[in-house]
Computed example of a mutant assay.
Amino acid sequence: MEKLFDILFAHIQEKVPLTDEEKKLIISFFKCKQLRRRQFLLQAGDVCKYISFVSQGLMKSYLVDEKGNEHINLFAWEGWWISDFRSFIFGDKAILDIDAVEDTTLLLLSRQNYERILAEVPVMERYFRILYQNSLATKDSRLISANTHNAEEKYALFLEAYPSISQRLPQNLIASYLGLSAETISRIKRKMIDPNA
């Protein structure tokens, strides 16, 4: 069981120090869940009961429009958190679907245990604050990119920011995340291989 937490502890310790006692206490707040590829963690309309840390695998959160098209909000892989955070914090119905792109192992933190971990392991308050700051900065950058970059630039920035993850994602999912069509991504990739194409 403790092996499952190695990635979590490494992630936390990049931002704040942890004692062995704090690690033991942190383990007690989580429960483990395994998902098969395409299995849902959360469906829109349900209340999000957990924030989830990806120990192994790959997840996506997304909105589905009235035409049935997915609009991907976030990818989460080893070392990332995923949730419909508004639903988790306020108890509203989730607007996001979250499912597994690959077979995935998650560490789940309930709302009650989230509050307890902040109170009982004070360094975790700082850890989550750093996460939220980083998340806000990333969302700002993504919004600016969506409004100022052309398709080629968006794709190039994605590959630069996430070189390893781009190899694990089908082209249509990358396209959805970037707000592009799969055909556009195909055209960009062909042009990257042969600039005269």
Rank of each mutant, 00 (worst) to 15 (best):
E14S: 11
F29V: 03
D65R: 04
Q34S: 14
V123Y: 00
L108W: 04
K93R: 12
N196G: 09
T148V: 11
E160Y: 02
L109P: 00
W77H: 13
E78P: 12
N147P: 04
Q133P: 01
K60G: 06
S110A: 03
D6M: 10
L118A: 06
G68F: 03
F90E: 11
Q39M: 14
N147L: 15
P17D: 05
M1S: 11
D140W: 07
Y127T: 03
S186V: 12
G57S: 09
R129E: 03
L18I: 11
L131A: 00
A94N: 01
P163H: 00
E125N: 10
F88I: 09
P195M: 05
A119Q: 14
W81L: 10
E102S: 04
K23A: 09
I185E: 00
P195R: 05
K33Q: 14
L4K: 10
L58C: 15
I12K: 02
A151R: 04
L136I: 15
L178W: 03
Q39R: 15
S145F: 07
R38L: 11
N134C: 05
I165P: 00
K24P: 00
A137S: 10
E22S: 09
L173F: 08
G79K: 09
Q34P: 01
T19S: 15
N69I: 10
I98H: 06
I144L: 15
T105H: 01
V121I: 08
M124F: 01
Y114K: 05
F158K: 03
Y62N: 09
R86M: 12
K23S: 00
A156T: 12
I165K: 02
L8R: 01
L173K: 09
I185R: 06
I185D: 03
S141R: 14
C32K: 15
H11Y: 02
D97K: 08
K93I: 01
V16A: 01
L41V: 06
D84Q: 05
L107N: 00
K24C: 02
Y50H: 12
Q167K: 12
P17L: 10
R36A: 13
E125G: 09
G91M: 10
H149S: 15
H71A: 12
F30E: 04
N113Q: 09
V47P: 00
L96F: 09
G45E: 03
D6R: 13
F40M: 13
A151I: 05
D140V: 15
Q171C: 02
Q167I: 02
A182V: 05
N69E: 13
L41N: 03
V123P: 02
K15T: 05
L25G: 01
L74S: 11
S166V: 14
L107C: 07
E120T: 05
S135N: 08
L143E: 13
L18V: 05
T104A: 15
W81T: 08
T138F: 14
Q39C: 10
